[in-house]
Design a protein around this nucleic acid. Structure first.
Lengths: 201, 201
DNA sequence: CGTGGCATGTAAACGGTTACATGATTTA
DNA sequence: TAAATCATGTAACCGTTTACATGCCACG
């Protein structure tokens, strides 16, 4: 009765829209929760089998006779109950692993310019992320479906944009600090005092 | 020549302070990069052996004769070079997996109050995190060592606090929205229009 | 008819955590 | 001398990714 989290993404996705194949599910996951959750086929297909064996989902419609052509699944009541149960359980953050921050932490050991490069790269990724998120947000606002899912979806988008914006702001200030520090270091040993954090115009 | 990331945390930690045992390393990791990186003994001890076999670190001092008593290690020049190389490589964010957001995304299926509970729990964790980070920050400012590591360490702290603060702000507004939505839902079907996002005091 | 994309699946490897076993040292 | 904790290590397991194999189908 213990399930890995892949099982719950699948149940959740099927709770939103029935009759999806493994292929569909992967696409759906990627395009909806893709910014904060990922799944691979190697995880999805075996899990589908298991969920079906346990009766939490059932094979539905086009299991067309030829040896192999898209098998769709639908959520059963047992599956829905299982999903609800899991939703009510306290969430669990998996052990933190931020390679960017790790490299920044050891920045003293890096060649000059390396960390600045990393931060610039982070800025690029975050700006792309922000573009993605705001695109989703405005798309949602554009044709305002009255889907009961919307409030929750907008909240997830909201946290995403808030975090990304905060990271970008930090990046700007960090770049200023590091550039200042680097030129100062190569020019003069040290003045009596330094307080580089106050102009972020 | 391929290393897992555990190897680099170890090299990094030894680049900051030599002569650490596996036990020391774990404590050091926990108390310095612990908020964004974790390691377990099961990963540390085998990696130490491997790094020593490859000459990136060397056993140093107290390998006292009795069968087993703390074995310390020190970084070699080869080890330092290896660390530098890795630092210069582009960082790689591992696949996103945020269980909180996943549960929030499927919130429509959850019993009433469940998501509010999750957000409150998130707020608790984030406030604790913020306390930890600001404590570290003020401790650093208190006795301002001129360690060349400090600028980088402060930057990592800065991103942590920025992200945490942003998350907390989001949480406050999210709680208001959800509470409003929930009471509205149980009282009247729907008014002509709703624009719940503009007062976040 | 051939190519490219749709679709399903599996085997192997990997990185990592957990739980456990063991003993040495400190302290009360 | 008993309890706590310092310290090292290993075996088993787990979830996940990667790479690969396969075959169907639509389109040019």
């Amino acid at each position: 009765m213990a399930h890995n989290r892949t099982a719950y993404v699948i149940l959740g996705m099927l709770s939103i829209e029935q009759n999806k194949s493994g292929y569909d599910l992967r696409k759906a996951i990627e395009s909806s929760v893709g910014t904060f959750w990922g799944e691979s086929y190697g995880q999805i297909y075996p899990t589908l089998k298991r969920l079906a064996a346990e009766g939490l989902i059932v094979p539905s419609s086009p299991a067309s006779q030829p040896r192999q052509r898209r098998q769709e699944y639908a959520l059963t009541e047992a599956g829905r109950a299982c999903l609800r149960e899991w939703l009510a359980l306290p969430f669990h953050n998996d052990p933190p692993r931020n390679e960017f921050l790790l490299k920044l932490f050891f920045g003293r050991e890096a060649a000059p310019g390396v960390e600045i490069g990393h931060i610039r790269e982070l800025q690029r990724r975050n700006r792309r992320m922000l573009a993605t998120l705001t695109a989703l947000e405005s798309a949602a606002r554009a044709h305002p479906s009255q889907s009961p899912h919307m409030p929750f979806w907008m909240l997830t988008l909201g946290l995403g944009t808030a975090l990304t914006r905060a990271a970008i702001e930090w990046g700007e200030s960090a770049l200023k600090q590091l550039s200042a520090g680097e030129t100062a270091e190569t020019q003069e040993p040290q003045p009596g005092e330094a307080n580089p954090v106050d102009s972020h115009g």
